[in-house]
């Protein structure tokens, strides 16, 4: 479980995050949504410790992140996995070496066991046959799947995904969403996904946090989004005509 308490973040005089409070449970896909510039990425960077909050605290199963020493933070980070927007794979390493990297760094298992684990993770994301390829030889969707395999290699308790669907076609986005959702249940991770993708919101959003102008503006599940009486959330989630019609359809179905 991850808990955010009264989190504020400013850059100079510009206040980006204002009094964010939230609880993200384990085994649940938690989505942070909001317009570009609303502070989602800053919030995620505060959560993983890449930015220090101006005030407030982030608790990982009751362990305060900002009060930890650098060594304690490093130890905590070994319980985290992260999928970056750009996949952030190491260019000079093959797919298998990328997935093995955290294991090589922190596991005391034999090389054979580490390889076995990496291959299991690659098979889990259906990339067992690409282990000898290099990131430059892979499509965007495949790179994201390698990033997922690398993120789960150490059996993380906390999984962070920064816009995992950006730059992907709708079909591949669904595959990635489904994979993240399955992994969350399978490994009981506390998964936090930063996204703009409304398909993700409506398909895997078990818990949604809507950030608007740096504030926690709305919280609920994908089922609550449709019924929510919140104009800002409505304008953001159902921005296109297609989504507006889809919303009407869902409401009619629920009414019947």
């Amino acid at each position: 479980m991850i808990e955010i308490k009264q989190l504020h973040k400013s850059f100079g005089t510009k206040q980006v995050l204002k009094d964010i409070n939230a609880v993200f449970s384990s085994g649940t896909t938690n989505l942070i949504i909001g317009q570009s510039g609303s502070g989602k990425t800053v919030l995620m960077k505060c959560l993983v410790g890449l930015f220090n909050p101006t005030s407030g605290e982030v608790f990982y199963d009751e362990r305060g992140l900002t009060t930890m020493t650098r060594q304690q933070q490093s130890a905590l980070r070994r319980e985290m996995g992260m999928i970056f927007q750009s996949a952030a794979l190491f260019d000079s390493l093959s797919v298998l070496e990328n997935v093995m990297f955290p294991l090589d760094m922190f596991s005391n298992e034999s090389v054979a066991r580490r390889k076995q684990r990496a291959r299991f993770c690659l098979d889990r994301v259906n990339l067992g046959d690409a282990e000898n390829k290099f990131p430059g030889e892979l499509s965007g969707g495949m790179q994201k799947r390698v990033a997922i395999a690398r993120a789960i290699a150490m059996n993380p308790k906390y999984l962070f995904c920064d816009e995992p669907n950006s730059g992907l076609d709708p079909k591949t986005s669904l595959v990635i969403d489904q994979l993240i959702s399955e992994i969350t249940k399978e490994f009981n991770t506390t998964t936090i996904i930063n996204t703009h993708d409304m398909n993700s919101v409506m398909s895997i959003g078990q818990h949604i946090l809507y950030i608007h102008e740096g504030r926690n503006h709305w919280e609920g599940s994908m089922h609550d989004v449709v019924k929510a009486n919140n104009p800002a959330l409505h304008d953001f989630v159902f921005a296109s005509q297609l989504l507006k019609k889809a919303k009407q359809g869902i409401l009619m179905d629920q009414h019947e």
Binding site: L50, L76, R78, M80, M82, F84, F90, M105, M154
Partner: peptide, 14 residues
Amino acid sequence: TSQQIDALEIMGVN
């Protein structure tokens, strides 16, 4: 810029 250093930090690597 391609977030590879951030990825190392998140893994707990100095």
